[in-house]
């Protein structure tokens, strides 16, 4: 790629030095010109990035007619994921207007050239986590670390993970009276929600570093159990998603699970207990970690 880019910059020298590549250069210039065309032609359609495939593939069959000395790769445009992201976001809005995809304000403005999913989820800039939730957070942590004796909360919580990691958790037969406000009173809700959402959750288990696949969402449900607003990644997960394409894939898989399993069947009379949910998706057990 680098050499090609160089070739484009100084085609004359290149041709001079390497006759064989004359064809490449020609094609390169040609495609380059055309690329400009395209961008001008279709102003409204920003979202596509241009990638040109080498005209030839490198196979030369001994037994077969030799393919013409085709240029190898005349149009570089490296298909870099980073770049490709820049364009997409603004697109949907301008064209149509009849589509009513909920309030999705983030999409329209000049897109942040970010690696974050251009999804309904707000792109990184809006971290409006105004919620006062240092508390559930604190609980979430120790739950993962089973042996953190230093953390008092962990002691408190030990029971919960033991229960919750039962693979086929249906609704718990009975709830055990506990101390923490959330453990006893809501354990059945947790189990129920967990068993519902597990059916829909298909995390990317082939990823090399399972710990990068842990993501946390905050979810608001309507009284009928449907999703009230696009689920929000925790600030920590958002940062991780921006860093790592596997984490992004994991976050998207989790979000698809949230949507596909909705509406959730939960006791309506306890709506106040489940209208606001933090979901911690952790596939490490599934991956034998």
């Amino acid at each position: 790629m680098a050499t090609m880019a160089g070739a484009r910059r100084s085609p004359v020298g290149f041709v001079g030095s390497l006759m064989i590549h004359a064809g490449i250069i020609g094609a390169t210039l040609f495609t380059f010109a055309h690329k400009l065309d395209v961008t001008q032609e279709s102003p409204p359609v920003v979202p596509v990035d241009l990638v040109t495939i080498a005209d030839k593939t490198n196979i030369m069959a001994a037994a077969k007619a030799r393919p013409k000395p085709e240029p190898k790769q005349e149009e570089p445009t490296p298909p870099e994921p980073q770049k490709t992201e820049t364009a997409p976001q603004p697109e949907p809005q301008p064209v149509k207007s009849e589509i009513p995809p909920e309030p999705k304000p983030v999409e329209a403005p000049p897109p942040p050239p970010e690696a974050v999913a251009p999804e309904p989820v707000k792109t990184p800039p809006p971290p409006p986590k105004a919620k006062p939730k240092p508390e559930p957070k604190a609980q979430a942590e120790p739950k993962k670390e089973k042996f953190d004796i230093n953390n008092i909360m962990a002691l408190l919580d030990k029971r919960a993970p033991a229960e919750s990691s039962a693979p086929n958790a249906r609704t718990a037969e009975k709830t055990i009276k506990g101390f923490g406000p959330q453990t006893a009173m809501t354990m059945d809700l947790q189990d129920s929600l967990r068993s519902q959402i597990q059916q829909c959750w298909s995390p990317p288990v082939g990823a090399p570093h399972p710990e990068e696949l842990v993501v946390e969402f905050e979810l608001f449900l309507k009284p009928d159990g449907s999703v009230a607003q696009p689920p929000q990644l925790s600030a920590e997960s958002q940062a991780a998603v921006a860093r790592d394409s596997f984490t992004r894939a994991a976050a998207e898989a989790a979000r698809r699970a949230i949507y596909t399993c909705a509406p959730y069947k939960l006791p309506a009379d306890r709506y106040n207990q489940w209208q606001d949910i933090t979901l911690n998706f952790d596939p490490r057990q599934m991956m034998g970690q």
Partner: peptide, 12 residues
């Protein structure tokens, strides 16, 4: 307070 749920098993 949000209800916290750990999801550790999926359905590939």
């Amino acid at each position: 307070a949000a209800l916290h749920v750990d999801v550790t098993q999926g359905n590939i």
